[in-house]
Design a binder for these strands. Structure first.
Lengths: 257, 257
DNA sequence: CCATCTTTGTGCACGCGTTCACAAAGACAT
DNA sequence: ATGTCTTTGTGAACGCGTGCACAAAGATGG
């Protein structure tokens, strides 16, 4: 899920399927844990269990990277950690800017997982002048005016948007104009970006709604399909539905963001 | 993607494909925006543009819900908002507990998107006794000891885990034992859950790593495959690779095929 | 009532991703 | 060396998701 521009043939470039790329970080995490415990080698079965996937899938995934295993033995942990890191581009470190230092932005800035794996918080940016200079996670917040300068000076190519939905597209446009080509979007909006820019989104309420769907399904299965007393739709606009199946009714209980 | 237990045949229940379910919240958001502007009807083309998807895909998605459109006209906005809300189970509201009130947990508690769309924060829970009673987002934090009682009293079926990775599995086990059947996991760990429990994960560093991969690919495409001076791996464990195909240190070729 | 025009709903084909199942490859013991 | 045993790497089949392209449905105007 989640690349904004799904139009591209995706993995046309150089073999590795998108689905595999999405799992590599998972394998890497499991391997790193093994490495810390000084485990020398691991079989596809063990590693798959640790990563929560099927072992056949894991082997096929690795086969796209090359033949890094040894039959009858398994995979060399250290070697594989390096190979995957390199494939993911984690041998260099990536400066990242976080825009929007509210609750979420601050949480992200404090998140340890950044620095540990090839990512470095190059700057924290917020539109509120009152925030300027105030340190968050040891880094002073800078004003939006500085955005372009920071990106160009530090060669930032990855931006994280943690602003309110209303500001997201505008921030996105400025990031892209300044040279950012990869964006991680936490704002609940669809971002419009030009060709060549990758967008991934993380959306809280979408995840919750998907869970709610399954939850409802579970609940509805055991209970017989009783006529649930759901109020019929408002049908405020009756026009297209001349054949109104619901006479009265009132507003759906859903509200905006 | 990202349901922990992918084993289930997924959509076996009642038609609606998983991929479609994942997009419904997107449509709902776009429709809600239209509703606020009092737009009466919308065509699949317009709505698809607003949601950032293909119009054919949108129509097919809606076809799984039923025939709610009117040919030659489009879809009734209010009606569709209601239908999707009902399908997603948002006409009832879901009590949610958030476990782990650190930076991220606090951010989640403050996130407006929760309350607005059928979700209600039933409780904030943290293991630190010092946090107990302290209000976050207007809700007093409660100690982990209360977890089981809260879940049972409020009939909570959805839990959000925002703890450090080390505590996540343990918290998860307690949530499940107490009756939670859907979990949204922000901790960077694979959660093990019994059959029937849904897990969705949101993982920062994985998203960033995927972006890094594509970023590296973009950079590597324009620049010719110059011998990048990447330091070869430690290769601490040489054993399994006794048959070194290279005279010197095994240089990882940038790409297999 | 008929013709035309718009937009939905869907049959169909295609490609990606997943899984099975097995042959090949190497380790290890004798 | 040779045989056995373990585990990888992958060919092939299958199913899901996507997008095209078009017929059917209804609106609208004469």
């Amino acid at each position: 899920m989640a690349t904004g521009r799904t139009h591209r043939p995706a993995t046309r470039s150089r073999g590795i399927p998108e689905a595999t790329v999405a799992r590599l970080p998972l394998y890497l995490r499991a391997l790193t844990a093994l490495s810390e415990r000084s485990v020398p080698t691991v079989s596809s079965e063990e590693l798959a269990a640790a990563a929560g996937v099927n072992s056949a899938k894991l082997r096929k995934d690795f086969s796209y990277l090359g033949s890094y295993g040894t039959r009858g033995v398994g995979y060399d942990v250290e070697y594989l950690v390096y190979q995957i890191s390199r494939e993911l581009g984690l041998t260099q470190d990536w400066p990242v800017v976080i825009v929007g230092i509210g609750n979420l932005g601050a949480a992200l800035a404090n998140y340890g997982g950044f620095a540990s794996r090839g990512f470095r918080v190059a700057a924290l940016i917020d539109a509120d002048p009152g925030m300027a200079g105030k340190p968050v996670a040891g880094i002073p917040v800078q004003h939006t005016d500085e955005l372009e300068k920071i990106i160009q000076d530090d060669g930032v190519s990855i931006g994280v948007i943690a602003t309110p939905a209303g500001a997201a597209q505008q921030v996105c446009d400025r990031l892209v104009a300044a040279g950012v080509t990869s964006i991680l979007n936490f704002a609940p909006t669809v971002l419009n970006v030009p060709e060549g820019v990758d967008v991934r989104k993380v959306d809280l309420s979408i995840e919750l709604q998907i869970l709610a769907f399954h939850e409802q399904r579970k609940a509805g299965e055991e209970a017989g399909a009783g006529a649930d007393g759901a109020v019929p739709p408002v049908a405020a606009r009756k026009q297209p539905h001349s054949t109104d199946q619901g006479p009265d009714g009132d507003v759906p209980a859903v509200m905006p963001a």
